[in-house]
Amino acid sequence: MDVLHYVLPNSLAEAYQLLHEDLNNHVIGGGVWMKNTLKSINTLIELKHLIGEKIEVTHEVIKIDANCPLRQLEIHPVIKDLYDGIISQSIEKIMGVSIRNVATIGGTVVGKYAFSDLLAALLAVDVTLVFFKQGRMELSKYLESHEKNRDILISIEIPIKKGTGYFHKVSTTHLDFAILNLAITQIDHQFRIVIGARPGIASCANQAMELINHAKEIDDTLINEVAECCVKELSFGSNFRGSEEYRMTLAKVYVARGLWEVIHHAS
């Protein structure tokens, strides 16, 4: 990789200013994704001395510094338990330990990768992002925006509530990207259903969520209707990993399975 300048700014304001001086100036998280995607960089902006990699737990939230490596999240005792451990589970099957020791949550969120397993789980637990300039923003809003991000992500907040969760990655091996990933939660009696790698980016199945959240009774018929609704409202597609039809078939099966799982865990 060609890097012309490597800078450790004195403040986030200075980092932000540098980032905006040239489209080829970049901040770096773990840098493993950049290594594989960028050939040359004008100014590489270091953040590790400004942002940190801590995980702080309070009564209501888990606050994670953007530079926190995935492996630290994966093995954190509180995160391992929260919502049946779906965040840890979504990380466990991303490559090997050595990549997870380096790749960061910040690089994952900002990158908006359509294949991302962690993004699916984070969307299902409704996390809040804290940016330097834009301040607080829901992850769902960030993922929906088509603008390229040029802000600095400082931290990510996971709400601590009572709830259950289900995560599933369909892939050939741990070293492959997902053919499909699903994250389902029931938090404060509200269901959230997220499907990613369709191959489009993780999205909530809002109509299906509405259907189940307003249902008077939950039985097999309703669950199948909800699963059917997910594949109707979200777009699915084909690539060399799997066809549209295969993904839709998988989605129906795993949505139904996941919903029953979170319901059983809750009772």
Binding site: V3, G31, K35, L44, E46, K48, R71, S98, V102
Partner: peptide, 13 residues
Amino acid sequence: GKPTPSCSLLTVR
């Protein structure tokens, strides 16, 4: 002490 892929870590960091 942690395993990491040296092919992807910039030495300056």
